[in-house]
Amino acid sequence: MTASVTISRVTQTYGAATALHEVSLQIEPGEFVVLLGPSGCGKTTLLNLIGGFAQPASGEILIGGRDMAGIAPAARPTTTVFQDYALFPHMTLAENVAFGLRMRGVGKAARRAKAAEMLALVGLPGREDRRPHELSGGQRQRVALARALAVSPEVLLLDEPLGALDLKLRRQMQDELKAIQRKVGTTFVHVTHDQEEAMALADRIVVMSEGRIADIGPPREVYLQPKSLFSAAFMGEINQLPVTRGQAGFGPVPGAGTRSGMLLIRPEAINTSQGLPLGEAVLTDAAFFGTHVRAHARLGALALVLHLPQGSDPRPGETMTLFASAHSFLEAS
């Protein structure tokens, strides 16, 4: 079961504040889309609109080509995994997972079988008769996922489901979540503020800022070819070199022509041997970070952040010639 989601020119307001400005987005059937942004960017508002927990002030939302205006959450082909899991504390895991089926009038034996199947899918086989308070945070998360998937939704909505987990567990759950999505083939719309989580999960990332879509595309593209300064910075540390009429401090910028804007270079794309020559820089400090050595350098009037290989041992004060192995130019708007 899977369906497309079409969001066209959706605006949402809360009193005088506008939470979403004419947002349009097309999500393909079976796609794993992550809505990424800082708190207050409108990502959760958008998810609630898809789930039917709020109605848009204007614009339309179609799921599987069907207009969702005025349709209650229960009647939509969507289910939600909530941030706080919202497991029913007075029910066993099987009863939790089978709740949606029970509401749909499915018989007891069939419900039980489906619950067992779903619990096995999320890696909790044989735990049907446990209760939520006996579980760890990660396990509760899995039950919430199983419960939402048990009714075979066409679109699964996930509202920061990994937010309450510690980092290690979060990385592990990301892998499992991705695997489960592959297996069931349902369209997943996932909200998070963690860009690493977004890259780990998404077929496409939608970066949001102040109620608008700031960037959209596969992780690689959003990371390496950001379409806005906001998404460039939100996806991770980045060096911004001003470009005036095709010229940066070190010379002409390839691909910029005579346009003005910013040359964007990730710290790990800077090296001392190959690529676009940036010129001579003076190292100001360096620290060992495990996977790399993080350093600061002065390039003319600019301060750069760079990641040097693990084995290098740069000294502050040292002068080095820097190159950029990957870069992108963003025209000023």
């Binding site: 909530f82 007075h90 709740f99 509401m103």
Partner: peptide
């Protein structure tokens, strides 16, 4: 939030009251 989840899973208001709110408030 549990009530919201139940509604999302297709429970009617009466079912939410009977299966979720009342037992949780027991």
């Amino acid at each position: 939030s549990a009530e919201r989840a139940a509604r999302d899973l297709g429970a009617s208001e009466a079912q939410v009251l009977w299966h979720i709110s009342a037992p949780m408030l027991a």
